[in-house]
Design a binder for these strands. Structure first.
Length: 425
RNA sequence: GGAGAGAUGGCAGAGCGGUUGAAUGCACCGGUCUUGAAAACCGGCAUACGUUAAUAGCGUAUCCAGGGUUCGAAUCCCUGUCUCUCCGCCA
């Protein structure tokens, strides 16, 4: 949610920044709502104040045994007037909320202005895409060689966009997860969390998935949501908290499955593990002092990169343009890993500074000893990394001509020292 | 799933439908006292919104949440959520 004060003080400026993000705010309509709100609120509160005063007088009169009737007459008309005024004010508030809940965060100044992913800007690359002296297989074909990846079985169980992994590939995915968690915990200073995979609508609203993106999430019969990312439960851990400033920064990591409807992506990445309804992810979330959020974003991006470096997977970092950023983000770096079979880089991590956008929605604040008034924290989240896509990247980048897959060195301890994944004998 | 109990400020814990944002204690902050500390004493100590240049005043709201009764609700009624105890079931 944007700062409502900002919408009052600098409406044209906000409208312009929203336009950069592809959101057209009807400035006139908003201004007229705001004008009505102000008049109505002042009226309502003044009526309320009058009634309270008279009611108190009635109490006193009664206590002294005086005649209350004149006072009762005086207050008689007030009630209806107040009810009307209140109702009108509530309508205005509701109407305004229907706008504000749908306003995306404003982009930082250094975010490139653009329409879509074509306008994203490459920041840096790491590693060199491997060359193969044979025809490369994609991860689906590699999975077929070992027989440890079974989309058909998954389709029978659940439909499209699911995968069954078995044996060494299942183990490799687990190894990746463990390695990522261990690295973030031991090298990067995150605390490990285990969180619910079902959350309520408040949590989804707090981190910005609701109300706008309800169609992207799976909802249960009793109104809960399967988490689309661990960002939702992790970030909401500080919802409605007033933290001590020395508790910051809070750095959390968790491994969870993620569930996404992938509504609107029909026909995209239908083959293989790129785009699934269910995938595992190791997530990083930081809750920081506002002045430190930009540095934290750089750090967090590096933390995600360190995983790829350790796995020796070539990647590049791009900054998303205003048109391609997520709803809650003020600035986002995507990390894209080299996918040999597609001869291109594909997203494997997204690291965002949401500034106070989520914090305002979920009322996550902190207080310093010097300052009386609590301030909103800044929140950041980043994938570190999407495990399924990492698995796919390892398979393709580490493939041999015969379809076997070398196990990256850092994963070998997690694989019982195994160095190559082969077809089962 | 069944039966019962409960939800009040950072914590503990009062609160006949009437000047209650809410007693009291603890914690915390400031002061007096003291060589220093403790004790004692004095004072302070919620959040949000509106208005405003203002984190000054003033107004409004908030005693789990949402409705209702009433001139007036922490207090009465309804619904929901959560917590606890017992039983059942269960990884």
């Amino acid at each position: 949610m944007l700062d409502p004060q900002l919408l009052r003080d600098n409406l044209p400026g906000v409208a312009k920044k929203l336009a950069d993000r592809g959101y057209q705010l009807d400035v006139q309509a908003w201004q007229s709502l705001e004008d009505r709100r102000k008049a109505l609120q002042i009226e309502t509160e003044s009526l309320q104040s009058q009634r309270t005063q008279i009611s108190k007088s009635i109490g006193q009169a009664k206590a002294k045994g005086e005649d209350m009737q004149p006072l009762l007459d005086q207050v008689a008309g007030l009630g209806d007037q107040l009810d009307q005024s209140k109702a009108a004010l509530q309508d205005i508030f509701a109407e305004m909320e229907q706008v504000t809940l749908y306003l995306p965060n404003l982009a930082q100044e250094d975010v490139p202005v653009g329409q879509d992913e074509a306008d994203n800007v490459e920041i840096r690359t790491w590693g060199t895409p491997p060359t193969f002296d044979f025809a490369v297989k994609d991860h689906v074909d590699l999975g077929a060689v070992s027989g440890f990846m079974d989309a058909e079985a998954a389709a029978t169980l659940s439909g499209s966009r699911f995968t069954v992994l078995s044996r060494d590939l299942a183990r490799l995915q687990r190894a990746l997860t463990q390695f990522m968690l261990d690295t973030h915990i031991n090298e990067h200073g995150y605390d490990e969390f285990y969180v619910p995979y079902l959350v309520n609508d408040q949590a989804m609203l707090g981190s910005g998935q609701l109300p706008k993106f309800a169609d992207d999430a799976f909802i249960t019969e009793d109104g809960r949501f399967l988490i689309p990312t661990a960002e939702v439960p992790l970030t909401n851990l500080v919802a409605n908290h007033i933290l001590d400033s020395d508790a910051l920064p809070i750095k959390m990591t968790a491994h969870t499955p993620c569930f996404r409807r992938e509504a609107g992506s029909y026909g995209k990445d239908t083959k293989g593990m790129i785009r699934q309804h269910q995938f595992d992810k190791v997530e990083m979330v930081q809750i920081v002092h506002p002045e430190e959020s930009n540095q934290a974003l750089e750090d967090m991006t590096n933390h995600a990169e360190n995983i790829l470096k350790a796995l020796k997977l070539p990647y590049r970092v791009i900054i998303l343009c205003t048109g391609d950023m997520g709803f809650s983000a003020a600035k986002t770096y995507d990390i894209e890993v080299w996918v040999p079979a597609q001869n291109t880089y594909r997203e494997i991590s997204s690291c965002s500074n949401c500034e106070d956008f989520q914090a305002r929605r979920m009322q996550a604040r902190f207080r310093t000893p010097e300052q009386k008034k609590p301030q909103l924290v800044h929140t950041l989240n980043g994938s570190g990394l999407a495990v399924g896509r990492t698995l796919l990247a390892v398979m393709e980048n580490y493939q041999n001509q015969n379809g076997s897959i070398r196990v990256p060195e850092v994963l070998q301890p997690y694989m019982g020292g195994e160095q190559v994944i082969n077809r089962a004998e």
